[in-house]
Design a protein around this nucleic acid. Structure first.
Lengths: 330, 330
DNA sequence: GGCACAATGCTCAGATTGAGCATAAGTGAG
DNA sequence: CTCACTTATGCTCAATCTGAGCATTGTGCC
């Protein structure tokens, strides 16, 4: 085996691939989660929103540093937290086939602290729920879900093979909480993939040239290529991460109120939290320390300004917001 | 920005990369965690253990399916669970520079159920703690840690810049639980990287041709290229995953005893668990169901054989073994 | 039968969690 | 100036979960 392995590994050299980087750059302002988008696409398929994507720059020693340099140069945004998300390499999903070369995209998640006007004309910050509206449960169950669920159930029902139908129903329960399942806010990608398979995502038809405007309002704004999938991956990852790592603070200004922090966490996770319990959590974990400042101007009692306590990283094994996933009613 | 982005993205096509796949194939037999290794390396640097690595096969629609096909063909092992781990692309760590091409490795974690003799001569199953001995705390704190810690402290102390020294000490606390920190069994990669930086990993010197045998016993058996880093990534990921996904069952035979299950979880996480509480956990989560079978032959009361309850996937949002990370003594 | 051994059952105090009530401290209207 | 309103913050309480240990039940062995 080793022989064969080695031979093949070297074979890869004569079989090079086109590799690109994609970045999901996230910020949160005014309690809304935003991603940096650009306009992409030629005149053929029309222009559409996309994620910033760039080449793999061979000058840099690591992929991450290459990404940092490239994004910082282009957006003039200092990237705080950067994390590799996933490497996408589906032939049939990439959209562009790079003429025989296998084409890969290494996707990264980046968190930035401040939202500048995004200097460059065609880049803009967009609320990420614009692209995945069913993920926002902050105002209760999204209305659009009713319609989506109907279509999903029809899709599951449309399977002639009873085994397949059963499996589809199970997946609906698992991801969308249908058929007696519970909604798990982390399964963003699984939900998107399910919608994709069910044919409810226009991008799925994109390559075949069909235009399907009908589903736009319900299943969200499409993006170029497979970028909604990348976005879904990022959101799911971030929603998981905030529970055991204090990454939210990468999105906060130097000082903030506990309620602003809560709003940000809620924005990311797409759910609402119990206010008093949230502060208890933050206090217990020692995630923040008070400053002298207080808010003013707004209505209501002024709130104390706090700042992130970096020391918590050394004290706690997994500091974060352990928002328990909703327990199923026993 | 969009313009520039597009131009550069297309630029990537004229700047192709060599891409390979690496697999960490994990099994657990007799309560020991094992990884499939092969012998790699030419005569120049001598042969050493490595992970199975192969080319990116363009025929397959997805990376994962390519990996599955390739591994199954080579090892005759049916891969159960497969998960993408990370894409490694460090210029200075890869070992082979592929002559100007940027070279990437997409690493995967695979869990297999049974350990066949691994048919092929040069492939063999190895206890993974052979490569990362400090990660095995099942028999208490590993002895080798004393020596490792000494060297790490010396390394931290060796920083002339007091700020840097402080940072190194913090990292020691965070990863190795030194300086008042706690041991977190998930930080496998961070520990490995720290040892690497501290110069305690022979592979770090590998490229410069130095031979350092002195550290072998304490810092574990080296591997080819950067494969220990890949292994560390896999272990860390798996240790995290078992807490909220029932992936351990991919490693178990169709029926097993609760204690065998516990031994497997312990093998992966490298820690010991309270027996009674472990069964309570498993029972509460509904992870298994009883069969009619019982063990026999061994000493002591026979144990009931159980099997994995697949339905749990549909019932619980995050079924797994929530072994709480050790709380710091307040 | 009696012993060693492992499986299994059960208890209990302390910590964590989910939910709500109560109070404090501002703003703006009348 | 006072009241109504709004948001911040403090505190309680029951339900549940966790960590740890004691007790009992089956088997093989002598």
């Amino acid at each position: 085996m080793a022989e064969e392995t080695q031979r093949q590994a070297e074979g890869a050299l004569s079989n090079p691939s086109a590799v690109g980087l994609v970045a999901v750059i996230v910020a949160a302002t005014d309690g809304e989660p935003r991603a940096l988008t650009v306009q992409v696409g030629g005149q053929a398929r029309g222009r559409s929103d996309g994620l910033p994507a760039g080449p793999l720059v061979p000058e840099h020693p690591t992929l991450e540093r290459g990404l940092r340099a490239w994004v910082e140069r282009q957006t003039h945004q200092r990237l705080g937290y950067v994390e590799q998300l996933y490497t996408f390499g589906d032939r049939d999903r990439q959209g562009d086939d790079a003429g025989g070369l296998h084409s890969l995209s290494v996707a990264y998640l980046a968190l930035v602290r401040e939202v500048r006007p995004a200097g460059l004309a065609e880049a803009s910050w967009r609320n990420w729920y614009r692209y995945l509206p069913w993920e926002d449960w902050r105002a209760g169950r999204p209305e659009s879900l009713a319609e989506i669920e109907g279509k999903l159930l029809a899709w599951a029902d449309g399977a002639t093979d009873p085994k397949l139908r059963r499996r589809r129903e199970d997946r609906l329960g698992l991801t969308f909480g249908l058929c007696g399942g519970a909604w798990n806010e982390e399964r963003v990608l699984e939900r998107y993939e399910l919608l994709f398979e069910a044919g409810l995502i226009p991008e799925a038809q994109g390559q075949s040239g069909e235009a399907r405007d009908s589903d736009l309002p319900v299943t969200g704004q499409p993006m170029a290529l497979d970028h909604r999938r990348v976005l879904a991956t990022a959101i799911g990852r971030l929603r998981g991460k905030i529970k055991y790592r204090p990454v939210v603070f990468e999105l906060m200004p130097p000082t903030f109120t506990l309620f602003q922090l809560q709003r940000t966490v809620e924005a990311l996770s797409g759910t609402n939290l119990h206010k008093q319990n949230f502060r208890r959590l933050v206090a217990q974990q020692g995630l923040v320390e008070e400053t002298d400042g207080v808010t003013s101007g707004a209505t209501g009692r002024p709130a104390r300004l706090v700042r992130f306590r970096r020391e918590v990283l050394l004290e706690r094994p997994a500091p974060g917001f352990r928002l328990r996933p909703a327990r199923r009613p026993a």
